[in-house]
């Protein structure tokens, strides 16, 4: 079927899915094994499970390697990442990076948004540009990620000393922020649902 026919079918059927997965795609084959947890093509609908659809390719690839080597802490990703070699990780990273980033549809607590925005501009915007939407330097966007997950990332770092690759994590994410600051920040990112 050629491209214009596809478009015809898509229009006629009102089908919401984008370009059909090609059977010859090993990245999709690998990536599909993640969907049971991370959602269809990585677009998580579970409010604590990170959206991985549309994350920067190099972030996914490096994060998976770090999970595998244990230099990035996790509950389960370490056990999963150990199942794949670099070629496989590259293929699945390409697959997820080529999906569209779809911000989580989540409510945000209006009462704390101002405080969140202020904190963000003061301490986070320097790196997490564009109100946290930026993917510059292969960073994960904060805007539109599930607030539940952002909170876990920050809490585990502070309370449990979990390893990640955040610059000066202990100062930036922990010592300088109280629990209410964290709440306000993640609500602010939740409200930036682009």
């Amino acid at each position: 079927m050629n491209r214009s026919m596809w478009i015809g079918v898509l229009l006629a059927g009102g089908i919401a899915f984008s370009v059909p997965a090609h059977a010859g795609d090993q990245g999709a084959m690998l990536g599909n094994t993640c969907a049971g947890c991370h959602g269809l093509k990585g677009a998580s609908a579970g409010e604590t499970m990170p959206i991985i659809a549309g994350l920067p390719r190099d972030f996914i690839y490096t994060a998976m390697q770090e999970f595998r080597e244990g230099t990035r802490s996790s509950t389960i990703m370490g056990r999963i990442a150990k199942g794949y070699n670099d070629t496989q990780l590259a293929a699945m990273s390409d697959f997820f990076a080529s999906q569209k980033w779809v911000a989580a549809a989540q409510p945000a607590d209006q009462a704390v948004l101002k405080r969140g925005e202020k904190l963000h501009l003061k301490r986070c915007e320097a790196c997490h540009r564009d109100n946290g939407a930026s993917q510059a330097l292969d960073m994960q966007p904060l805007a539109g990620q599930w607030a539940g997950y952002l909170r876990i990332y920050m809490d585990t770092c502070r309370d449990t000393g979990w390893k990640n690759r955040h610059p000066n994590a202990m100062t930036v994410l922990c010592n300088d922020l109280g629990a209410e600051d964290v709440s306000a920040l993640v609500q602010f990112y939740a409200s930036q649902n682009k």
Partner: peptide, 13 residues
């Protein structure tokens, strides 16, 4: 916590 998100995702899929 992740168990409930797993359920949400696998059933939404």
């Amino acid at each position: 916590i992740y168990a409930y998100s797993w359920f949400k995702n696998i059933t939404t899929e």
